[in-house]
Write a protein that binds this DNA or RNA. Sequence first.
DNA 1: AAGTGGTCTAGACCACATG
DNA 2: ATGTGGTCTAGACCACTTT
Lengths: 234, 234
Amino acid sequence: MPKYTEISEAIIELIKKDNLQQGDKLPSLNQLTKDFNVSKTTIVKSLEILQKNGVIFQVHGSGIFVRRNQKKGMIDLQTNLGFTSDLENENLNAKNIEFSVINPPRAVANELGISIYDEVFHVKRLRSMNDLVFCIEESYFKKTMVPYLNEEITSGSIFEYLKTAYNLETGFSDKYLSVSKLSNEEAQLLSLNENDPCQVTKELFYSTNGEPFDYSINTYNYQNAQFFLQITNN
Amino acid sequence: MPKYTEISEAIIELIKKDNLQQGDKLPSLNQLTKDFNVSKTTIVKSLEILQKNGVIFQVHGSGIFVRRNQKKGMIDLQTNLGFTSDLENENLNAKNIEFSVINPPRAVANELGISIYDEVFHVKRLRSMNDLVFCIEESYFKKTMVPYLNEEITSGSIFEYLKTAYNLETGFSDKYLSVSKLSNEEAQLLSLNENDPCQVTKELFYSTNGEPFDYSINTYNYQNAQFFLQITNN
DNA sequence: AAGTGGTCTAGACCACATG
DNA sequence: ATGTGGTCTAGACCACTTT
């Protein structure tokens, strides 16, 4: 793990330990280089990461300040994982309602950059939090990149499995958000009524070398799913 | 303007000029330092920006590749401006339907960190694209930071005005997304029916020195508003 | 004037990918 | 083995804020 990552994490710990709140001041750049005994550039890099993740903000000539406030129970759009890390302290669950190997629908094939004669794992899961179903997740994994899956794996964290089994990690992803009306089937799964509103997200996950491997469509219960995003300029 | 910004922009121009597509390779780091006659660190910084903005991705040991593909007509969640820059080539419009100075509702006061006895500009606008209303925008500007506004200004780009008049820029912002049902009044403004679905975003904008100055609630026509977001790890 | 963050350099060394 | 991106240093200088 690079130094700057270690330092980023150390600063997060510091904020937690001292229970610092939004607007509270952190040690100066100069002080941090001494504290961690590294060059200024390394601290700057650590701070850039924290800034990007919404943990701090820097004010030129003034100082480094704490930004993070709790977004408890909300889904962080900034992450590339499923939900496992977003909703850390919540009781998160996945229940398979479909698991098969299929030829992808044309739209999915297009997104994944494969032919409709190639094979994909088709996984449909109900995601629940504290026993409340909040999302229907329908995923398609390119079989050339994810050669094996089974229902035991898909009832847990698929991304964790891909990391450990194939060293397959998400390098980046595209997310699309829209709003729609629930079909009858979806409504039943989410304990809502047909034509009720729903948030729909479509996500395309790329490996670190830029190859798409997973296309997912998520349909959320609009009453118990909220999203947040922290933007930083520069 | 710092060198790394100039270089970022130059690389974007290069991509446009050569009409490079997703997956196409850019010159190597080494080559770029020669091309722009700067140190490696500066190029790295330029590339970090492009990476963060979803323009490129870098593969360790392999190269720098073009990422951006067109998300035409979609709203980029990553930006801190209104829509003026997102939907560049679209015919964008704002029509005032409310303009006043008020004491903020409690929820707004909380977000802006002021008292309900302080004053805010209350601006409600209909945003349309190619003469199609796609959004109701309700904004509250802290009067201590935005001392003056009028209906002429609010019928254009407010953020541009704040920049030129007060050198007030957004340093960062928090965005919250949820889904709801339209009220009768909202439905009429958006040419939809009562209880139809809608995307709701709540945005809190902070100045570069970390003080919130604008809280906005946007209600979107679900049929002609789509959002996208490009995520990059590290 | 002093302190703080922001930019930039030249160069060293490391880690991964490709031929 | 070579080329490519990734990390890190020590230090110079700049720009903004605070006292």
